[in-house]
């Protein structure tokens, strides 16, 4: 005979409630700690475009760059390049909201 059948049904109920409550607490704790650590900073990208040959160059952002800045030489034709965009590339985030 298994041990369970020898026990009083009320004991089984009590054990079930305790198991349920403790697993609920554990799960809610784990969920909270897992939402806290997903903090990944992305990289900032600078997009430069050549004003004469339309060559586009993506590079990591350097301090002091701003959209509209001209002055650098195009590696292809030697023309002037302008910063056309600066943005943050973030790793894709899990979507939880209903859209």
């Amino acid at each position: 005979m298994s041990v369970l059948l020898e026990l009083d049904p009320l004991y089984i109920l009590l054990i079930a409630i305790i198991v349920f409550l403790s697993s609920y607490l554990l799960i809610s704790y784990l969920r909270e700690s897992s939402t806290q650590k997903k903090e990944e900073k992305g990289k900032i990208v600078t997009v430069k475009k050549c004003l004469s040959c339309n060559y586009v160059l993506n590079k990591p952002y350097d301090k002091g760059e701003y959209v509209g800045r001209v002055g650098e030489k195009c590696p292809k034709c030697g023309g002037e390049m302008m910063v056309t965009a600066i943005y943050l590339e973030t790793p894709p985030q899990p979507q939880e909201a209903i859209s």
């Binding site: 952002y61 301090k63 701003y66 959209v67 509209g68 001209v70 056309t84 600066i86």
Partner: peptide
């Protein structure tokens, strides 16, 4: 502190895009 455009700059960036390299 970094100095790169922020999200609120979207309107200003649209203006810049329309201008191209006009100064």
């Amino acid at each position: 502190g970094v100095g790169a455009p922020i999200g609120d700059g979207a309107g200003a960036l649209v203006a810049r895009m329309l201008l191209g390299n006009v100064s």
